[in-house]
Every structure is written in C-alpha cells, then in structure tokens.
Design a protein around this nucleic acid. Structure first.
Lengths: 218, 218, 218, 218
DNA sequence: AATGAATGAGTATTCATTCAT
DNA sequence: GATGAATGAATACTCATTCAT
C-alpha cells in the first residue's frame, strides 16, 4: 500500500506533493518556504512552479488529490456493508487506519484545512465536502431504516462525527502516538458516537460501583 | 454583558485585544498586519508594542485571557449543578451561548487555535487545557457515580466532545448563522453526545417506520 | 538654480527622485535595482515604497514632476517674446540649457521616455504632450502671422523639431560632452530648423566654391 | 519584396529574427521572454540558443542584419542620383517606405535602439552609424557643391535629420497610422529639413495673409 | 505614553540559460 | 540539430519591529 497521493507514475508532481505534505506537517503552511519543499523533494525551487501555479495552489492540489484517493478507498470499504450502523463503524475504523497509514497527510489536513478553507481565495473544497457527505449519506440511510432518530439532522451529525474524529486525529498526530493507541481512539470514538457516553438506565441518579478513579487519561 | 475579554479597565490593552480578535476573525492571523489591528483600534502601529511583545504574543494573550474569562464563567454555571450529566448538558449549552455572545472570538479560537498550538513557539496553552479538563472532570465525576462507563477514557471523551462542539461552532461562524440555529446545534450535539446517535433497541436489524426522508440538511 | 525636480522641502520624496534620476541615467530603468536607488539615496529599500507605489510609478513620477518644472520654466521664458520665430529660437536655447543644467535628467528623458510611454501601463504622459504642445502653439501662432507656411502641420512640425533636439541631446549626454558644445548643437539646430539646411538660391544645380571637405564631424 | 531581414535561405536563424522583431515590437525587449519568441517562431526555447548566444545578442544581430539590408537598399537608391539635395529627398522618401514596408522592425529600431546602444555591453552599433553616415556623406557632398552652408557640421546635421525622421516614425508606428499618412510625414519632413520651416522673406516681422487657422493637427 | 517614519530581513516568483535525451 | 524540463540566481516588494520625537 503506497502513500495516499501516489499514483503509479512516480513523477515530479507526485514528488512535490509528498515533499509538501511532509514539510507542511512539520512547519505549517505559512512557515514553510517554497525552498523547504524543493529541498525536501531534491529539486530546484523553480521546478515547483512548473507543476503548480503557486504555493496556495500546491496546498489545494494536495488536499484535493489526497481527499480524492481517500474517498475512493472509503467508498470501496463501505460498498459491501449493508447495515448503516456497521458502515459508520467501518468509516470510523477506516479514518484512523488512514491516519496511521499517512500520518503527515493526516496532520496537514487536520491542522491546515480550516485555515485554507477560509483564507485561500476561491477554494471551494469540493472533495472535503464529499468526504463529509459520505457520513451524512450513511446517516440518512440509517434514518430511513429507523436506526437513527429522524429529528437529528444529518448535516449536523456528520459534523459532530467528523469533529470528534478530527480532534482525536489531532492529538494522536501531535502527541507522537505515545499517549493513546489509534485502536483505543477508534473504539472509544465508535462507542461514544454510536451509543453516546451516558449509561442508559442510569441516566438520572445512577451510582458508581467503582469509585476508584485514577487521574490517568485526562 | 460585555465582550468576554473585557475587564473593567477599558484600556489600550483591552482595545488592542478586541481589535485583534475582530481582525484575526476576518483575515486570519497570518494575513493580518499589525497595521490592520492598529487601524481597527484607532491607534498607532507602535503602540501595540507597548502592550504586547510581538504579534505571536498578542495572539497568545488573546487566547489566554479569553479562555480565562470563559473558564470562570463556565465554572460559575456548573457550580450549582450536582448531576454530572446535567453539568455536561450545561457545559454544551454554555459553549454555544459563548459562540453567540462573541462570534468573532469563537471564530478565532476555532480557526486559529490549532495552528497556534503547533507553530507558536513555547505556547503551552494552559488555559485551553484547563477548559478541556472541565469536561474530563465532569466525565470522571460521572464515572465515579456510575453514569458513564469506566472503560471510556476521560482524556479521549473530552476531545470527542470538544471536537464535536468545535466543528459545529466552525460551521456556524463561517456560514453566517444562516443554515442552523445555535439552539438546534446545541440540542443535537447534546443528544448525540449523551445518548449517542443510534436508537438503542434497534441497534441490530431495526427497521424504519418512516421511510420518507428528505435530502435537506446534508 | 537648483536641480529641476527640487522644491524647497528637501524631503525623502525629492531625495528618492534625485537618486532615481542619477541611477536610471547610469544604468537604465530595467537594469536599475530598487536597492541601487536606495543606496544612492542613503535610505532603506523599503522607504522607497513609502513614497512610491512601485518602480514603474517612481519613473512616471520622475517624468511628470520634472516635465512640470520644465514646462513652467520654458513658459516663463517665452512669456515676454512676441515674435513666434524668436520664441522658437528661445525654446531651442532653453532646451539645451536644461540639458546642461540637469544632464542626468536629460539622459533619462531622452533614453527612457519612449519605452515608458509604450510599456508602462496606463501612463498617458500628459506633461510630455504639454511640452510638445508649446512647440505646436508657437508654430500655429507663426502660421497665423504668416511666418510659417500653413500647409505644414503643427502636429508634425513639433515632432520634427523635438526629434531633432532630442537626438542632439542624446549624443551630447552620451558623448560626455566632448565632441560638440551645447552651443554649437543649439545654434546648428536653430538654423537648420528655421532656415533649413539648403542654401536657398542654389537649390537646384548649385556648385561648390570650396571642394575641400574634411572628414571631421561625421 | 520580402521582409527586410530575409535572405534567400529561409532558415531558423531568419525565422527567429522575424519572431523576435514581432515580439519585441509588441512587448518591448525587456518585457519579452525567450519563450515568447520561441512560441512565435514555433520552435523550442532551447533552439534559439543554437543560433544566438543570448537574448542581448539576438537583439544586436537583429539590428545589425536589418541595418545591413537597409543600407544596401538605400545605397542602391542613391547610386543613380547626382544632386545631393535630391539624394537627401530620396533618403527621406526611402526611410518612410521602409517604415511602411516593415512596421514591426521600424518600431523595434525606433523604440529599442537607444536603450540597446547604451545598456548592451560591447555593442558598438557599427551598422547604425553607417546608416547615419550615409546622411552625412550626402551633406558633405552638398557642402562641397555649395548647396549646404559649410559652417553646419555634417555630424550634427545627420543627427538633426535622423532625429526628425525617427520621431515621425515613432508617432506613426505607435498611432497605428491613423493620424497622418506616411506621405504627409515624408513631405513635411522633406520640406522642413531642406527649406526650414520659416518663410524666407518674412523672416523678420512677417505678417499673415491667412489668419484663419484651425486647431487640427496638434 | 504614543506616534508613525524608517528599517531591512525575508521570500515567492520569474525567466534566461543549460543539457540530457 | 531540436527539444523542453530543469535549474537557481536574481529582485521587487512586504511588513514586523524599532526608536527618535
């Protein structure tokens, strides 16, 4: 399994995108110099401009192409699953597999995407919307099957879910994966999202059998 | 009720922070010039440096002072509530009230905080951690009372919850509050987080009584 | 008598224009770096941008302000002269006095003005047209008084006259004033322009009394 | 009659020179990219360097080869004329014929030659001097025959004449030949240069028979 | 304290030129 | 000979920061 943005032709375009992902992850978009990327890619500064109009465009291309690959992959994963709730579990599982598989890309998307959406002119970010809409598609299907209450708005739920996954991605890529395993993040996220965090029949006035509670994990 | 960062002394320090919030919200940290802020504050560029060491420090101060106020406020709100689940409901309610109350600040925090955490040297972001730890404190309390399963890690849950709220905040501040009301975001978030999105007794093999399902809200 | 572009206030604007004139004269507009001008003016590069939008604008300002001064001066000179032919003599005399007085400026105007007219966007060069129109004004007046044949078009004659003066200016500024004196250039130009080069009554079939003819002066 | 720079071998060298003339005329030397010329010539950028050492050399070659052709042509025209004044008339006539015949070349020579003379290192511009010396040759001959006063210096007169022709060429190529016909420019230039602009016997204190004088032609 | 003119380090981008194919 | 991808030196311009007033 190759890096996400990595079609067979190992060309300059690809080489530059990979170098940009790595460098943006390390230094951030605004603190990355074109010359940093060029050095990382072992090419001349000017070469980057043969493949990308400018620095903004490079970031946008990076996002679009990466999201495109990711979307293809996750759609493939979901294709054979019927139960929407199971699809949602698979989506979450896939999300964290992606994060492990391409940590630098995950970091760039998680840290830079908001800024880019807002401050790069004319960036409509179609692919990212498409990714989110996979979630709302699942939700709508689940609602149709009576698995999710209809008064919950798919457009809101998709953001709640993505927001949760995104924030967990953030701490994992920033922490240097030392604190929590991706498996733990994935399973807790899955449970919390699908079942909620509250124990059902104790919703009001429940009591604890296990008062011992260490500080660990805050 | 004054803007969050607004202690009684209506001084230059305050004036600059307010101008910075407004300008960062509009143009983003990296695209904002010190002169933009000075102009917004109706002072000279140089004056900013009498109150803040540099541009980075201004952003950090803005975050710390704002979070400090927010933390005081939310703690006050939670003080009289015993049930941790109710505290969580109140926390979420408060979060969106804050967003409405100081939209520019919400936008800056939501859009700029990640970047800042990572790329502003030596920024430890104690206050933001404290805000998050209010959530994990509630969770731990709930776990102690048997309201939340103990195998869910508070340090993870707090991020799931914050991530969800943060993402909803983002769409509201960016959309110009046209699509969803804050009340709807708040109530859906509360329900999804506390109860989860899946209908309990239909978890497996449920069917839908109401197959009609509009596309709206994606 | 101060340099042409030199109003009483010895400010940065003025200082930069003078430095630009000197540097453009020496190296040409396209081969002059902003840093060359800044160095010549003993200021920082950035300071230039406090006074001029960009390099193009600096050149245009230089032209406009210089021509403005020149136009005022020549109009003053012509004001007390009635005979248009005498006005024309005075104009030519003045032109070469200017050249001597501000050689660098003369060089910039003569060498760079054509390029600028054509390739600096939106440069309409009103002042230069006004300078030329002083000549056509004189011509028209002379034609009204029967001193210049009416079939000669003022708009063409003004260009013939300016072209001649301009070309002579060029060789003088480039030659380092070694070959011909400005007085000689001025007097030959005056005579050639006003009387033409041909001896009148020998117009056809004249013969030469003085066949000796050195190569000098080619 | 082929374009001036156009010897029988219709080779790449020629092709490049023609493309350069067209492109320099349109965009100016400094604003023309090698790739612009290559595109105009339908060849690869690198090919230009097989025929010309660099961009400067290309411009110089363009001038030298063009002037060489022009010189041959004008010498042929003058060969059969005895009267130097008639030769001068023919020279002027030829000059404007050239302008019409190869407008792009005329534009390049008129607009770019001064800059090149001064700022392209080691460019001696022998051919252009030779062209000018055809004029001074005629003048010297005329002086020998008593047709032109000997106190007028041929080296100055040639510049006066060329300057006048050059300036008229400029307005014609830039105006898109809308304002004056080349014939009018040519005839007025011829008359002004040979006879001067002043009516002889009215040189002092003349009066006008025709005070009506339109503004047209300024 | 407040100003804002001046600074000059920093960088995205361009483009003449090269050279492997 | 032709190509055109790659190079990397060069530079206009920006803007955080300083400091004399």
């Amino acid at each position: 399994m190759k890096k996400i943005v990595n079609n067979e032709k190992n060309d300059k375009h690809e080489q530059i995108i990979r170098a940009a992902i790595k460098t943006f992850a390390r230094k951030g978009f605004y603190n990355t110099r074109i010359s940093d990327i060029a050095k990382e890619a072992n090419i001349a500064d000017g070469t980057i401009y043969l493949y990308f109009k400018n620095k903004d465009t490079l970031l946008v291309s990076l996002f679009e192409e990466s999201m495109d690959q990711i979307i293809q992959m996750v759609k493939g994963r979901l294709a054979n699953i019927d139960d929407p709730i199971e699809q949602l579990r698979e989506f979450i599982k896939f999300h964290f597999e992606m994060v492990r598989y391409d940590k630098f890309l995950a970091e760039v998307i998680t840290v830079e995407l908001r800024q880019s959406n807002k401050f790069i002119k004319q960036y409509k970010n179609i692919k990212f919307r498409e990714y989110l809409n996979i979630i709302s598609g699942i939700i709508r299907e689940a609602q149709a099957k009576g698995l999710i209450a209809k008064h919950l708005v798919p457009g809101i739920l998709k953001r709640i879910i993505f927001g949760a996954l995104d924030e967990l991605t953030l701490i994992w890529v920033l922490a240097g994966d030392t604190k929590y395993t991706l498996e733990k993040l994935s399973s807790d996220a899955t449970e919390a999202i699908i079942n909620g965090i509250a124990i059902k029949n104790k919703h009001i006035g429940g009591n604890s059998e296990d008062p011992g509670n260490s500080k660990k994990g805050e």
